[in-house]
């Protein structure tokens, strides 16, 4: 299958490993990945902060950049949710975007990607993946099939980590208070790695974990699935 990669502006700037991992897993499964080089950003930060007018050109550009692709896959649940939930209203069409784990399980019918990762991992279901995309147990089903991986329950997993896009800056104190509770819950599990399907939330939780010198890492689920 020919699959378009929507990297997202955040991963393009700060987390290239998530994009590489998506390419590696899909190619390992025998699919062709194309990367439209003109792509930039879905406009989520503008839309959610109340800059709908500034978001319009970005949404139209997205539709142009990914035209002709039947499947566009992204390692970001919240960016996929942005396109799926709001593009029809914004630009009159909704490109066929899929969150990475959703694409693996629902479109490719794969629950074991042949990965190995011998570590204790806790999974944080990020809000937009959980409530807007209804990812359910797709990410954890994929993680459970990874050789050597021990999946550890995260208490209050469904509670928001406090990132919230520009909320993290506009309401920094509240954001950090929420993130602190989440990071403490992660440390309490004894996990070596916290995994999620959104690097934005992981940047927030991970930013606290490294500031505390905790030794617990954050990783995108795709990076774990790419491990052999």
């Amino acid at each position: 299958m020919r699959v378009g990669l929507f990297l997202t502006c955040l991963n393009d700037t700060l987390f290239p490993a998530a994009g590489k991992a998506v390419v590696q897993v899909l190619e390992r499964l025998g699919h062709e990945v194309v990367f439209p080089r003109a792509q930039t950003c879905c406009g989520q930060a503008h839309f959610n902060t109340g800059y709908r007018r500034e978001c319009g050109p970005l949404a139209r550009k997205f539709v142009r950049d990914f035209a002709g692709l039947d499947h566009v896959v992204s390692p970001s649940a919240s960016c996929v949710a942005m396109v799926r939930e709001n593009y029809r209203d914004l630009v009159g069409e909704s490109p066929p975007v899929y969150e990475f784990t959703e694409f693996l399980v629902d479109v490719l019918g794969v629950t074991d990607v042949g990965a190995a990762f011998p570590h204790r991992v806790a999974y944080h279901p990020t809000c937009h993946g959980l409530r807007l995309l209804d990812l359910g147990d797709r990410p954890t089903t994929l993680l459970r099939a990874v050789r050597g991986l021990r999946l550890i329950d995260l208490p209050d997993a469904k509670h928001c980590c406090g990132f919230g896009g520009t909320f993290a800056l506009k309401n920094a104190d509240t954001s950090v208070a929420m993130g602190t509770d989440k990071a403490r819950a992660v440390l309490g599990t004894g996990a070596e790695v916290l995994a999620a399907v959104d690097n934005s939330c992981l940047m927030h939780i991970g930013g606290l974990l490294t500031r505390w010198r905790s030794g617990t890492r954050v990783l995108h689920v795709a990076e774990i699935l790419a491990g052999t």
């Binding site: 700060l14 590489k20 800056l169 920094a172 993130g179 940047m203 930013g207 606290l208 490294t210």
Partner: peptide, 24 residues
Amino acid sequence: GPWRRWTQARDLPAPAEESFREWW
């Protein structure tokens, strides 16, 4: 400015050695 509100309590990720596009 606004970035200070991030870095007061949170680290920013270390930049990657190689960008996605260079790798691609």
